[in-house]
């Protein structure tokens, strides 16, 4: 099991996700600085959350031009699992690995709180072990949008990974924290080896966090 966590200037969940991976898989992931140009053989590449380049211009825009991202894109196309969390999701979209855009939250403010999600695609390497799960979100731009043609495409191809829902798994407007289209909290690429999601599974990964639901995503991909 070899995993890699990409570190951009301004990443701030790199350590958190590395700790979660270590706790769950027993293996210490390798941290990869954004100026490096390639990643060795990998079973999982994580693009962590944070404020890469301060989120200046557009979240994730400048990180997507980093040298390392060319190799991440290449590896993703070869089928290596890539997980982007929060700012990492934004970076994967800007890199062209995932469809859509992440706009400012409909409330126009940063939101940090626990939410519930459930997988729509239940067979991908990332989502197969998760049911209704509680974990935090912490973002200003998580309002997912795609054009209606793209939406149809990702729906038909079973690319919706997670949707915001209530305790009973109902996907409703009330359970949508940020205005995302179709309550989308995370999406997959066509081949289902790239996942971008706004919620932070690494912050719900041990008892001290008050909830361990986030572990299921790592368990699914790491074991």
């Amino acid at each position: 099991m070899k995993s890699h966590v990409i570190v951009f200037p301004g990443s701030n969940c790199d350590r958190d996700v590395a700790v979660a991976i270590k706790n769950i898989s027993g293996h210490q992931p390798q941290m990869v600085w954004h100026k490096e140009s390639s990643i060795n053989q990998s079973d999982l590449i994580v693009v962590p959350g944070g404020f890469s380049y301060g989120d200046y211009l557009r979240c994730g825009a400048m990180a997507s031009t980093s040298p390392i991202m060319q190799d991440v894109v290449k590896k993703a196309k070869e089928g290596v699992p890539v997980l982007g969390i929060c700012n990492g999701f934004q970076i994967l979209i800007e890199s062209g690995l995932l469809d859509g855009a992440l706009m400012r939250n409909s409330s126009l403010s940063f939101i940090c709180r626990d939410i519930l999600i459930k997988p729509k695609n239940q067979s991908s390497v990332f989502t197969k072990k998760t049911q209704v799960a509680k974990m935090p979100i912490a973002h200003n731009e998580g309002n997912f949008f795609v054009t209606s043609e793209q939406l149809k495409k990702i729906q038909d191809n079973d690319q919706i990974a997670f949707q915001y829902c209530d305790e009973n798994g109902n996907v409703s407007e009330h359970s949508n924290p940020n205005g995302s289209l179709e309550n989308i909290a995370g999406i997959l690429n066509e081949n289902k080896n790239v996942l971008g999601m706004m919620p932070h599974p690494e912050r719900a990964a041990e008892l001290a966090h008050g909830c361990e639901d986030g572990k299921t995503i790592f368990e699914s991909i790491l074991n």
Binding site: N12, R15, D16, S109, F110, I111, C112, A138, R203, G210
Partner: peptide, 13 residues
């Protein structure tokens, strides 16, 4: 406090 990230660093108990 919902406008503050109060959980980053994953050590907020």
């Amino acid at each position: 406090w919902e406008q503050y990230d109060h959980m980053v660093m994953a050590d907020t108990v």
